[in-house]
């Protein structure tokens, strides 16, 4: 494992912790898109089908369990928890996220590295993860007062994707035959979706102003 991969995983972990902190301690999910969280839960469920069949490392298995557990508990909190549910911006979070599932699945059936069930599901999870942030970004644009934790959550998620690209570049030059177009292109698309957010995040940070995205 290289430093970029580790840093990427740690920012991913940090993003989840920031979100859980907000939800669990403040009992609020204001500004958080349930649609995006549901897509992430589907992403991890379809990607980690190998969790009990292919052992890679203890680190790997633990991280998979954390991402699965946290993504489903976040969805549970927003849908079922009495207090958290009340803070959910239902009327603002209107992105039709189910419409993303079918195109991603068809694309995974057509473009994959190997036509097997596990491999197609793994590829599907990559395509879906690439676009899963869209409902969250739309919600952010509609939110007048983006609180710090929400801003940091999205920033950490974007940083995680950026670091994974550096990890792939590093692996490409250090490992023989390391060529994976599917995760690279979907990962690049995913990172580019954050570009706009990053711009305004740094602007607000530089000018010491509250984060606000232009509608």
């Amino acid at each position: 494992m290289n430093i970029f991969r580790l840093a990427g995983d740690m920012t991913h972990l940090a993003s989840v912790l920031v979100l859980l902190l907000k939800i669990h301690t403040i009992k609020s999910c204001a500004g958080i898109s349930l649609k995006t969280q549901e897509l992430f839960a589907i992403v991890f469920a379809s990607r980690y089908l190998d969790i009990f069949t292919d052992f890679i490392s203890l680190y790997n298995t633990l991280m998979k369990l954390i991402f699965l557990g946290s993504s489903f508990s976040i969805v549970w909190y927003i849908r079922r928890h009495k207090l958290v549910r009340r803070s959910y911006d239902k009327d603002q979070d209107t992105f039709r996220h189910y419409f993303l599932l079918l195109p991603c699945f068809i694309l995974a059936l057509l473009i994959n590295e190997k036509f097997t069930f596990k491999e197609v599901m793994w590829t599907f999870s990559l395509y879906l993860e690439a676009v899963a942030i869209l409902p969250q970004l739309v919600l952010l644009q509609r939110t007048k007062n983006i609180d710090n934790l929400t801003g940091q959550y999205v920033f950490l998620l974007g940083a995680y994707r950026g670091l994974y690209i550096l990890n792939w570049i590093y692996r490409y030059f250090t490992e023989p035959h390391y060529v994976h177009w599917i995760p690279w292109i979907s990962g690049l698309v995913q990172t580019l979706l954050y570009a706009d957010f990053f711009y305004y995040y740094f602007e607000s940070w530089k000018n010491n102003k509250k984060l606000q995205l232009p509608a």
């Binding site: 991913h12 292919d54 790997n60 991402f67 692996r171 023989p176 035959h177 994976h180 995760p183």
Partner: peptide
Amino acid sequence: DEKQSNHDEL
């Protein structure tokens, strides 16, 4: 050589 897998990533 077998192609390097990237399923070791999260």
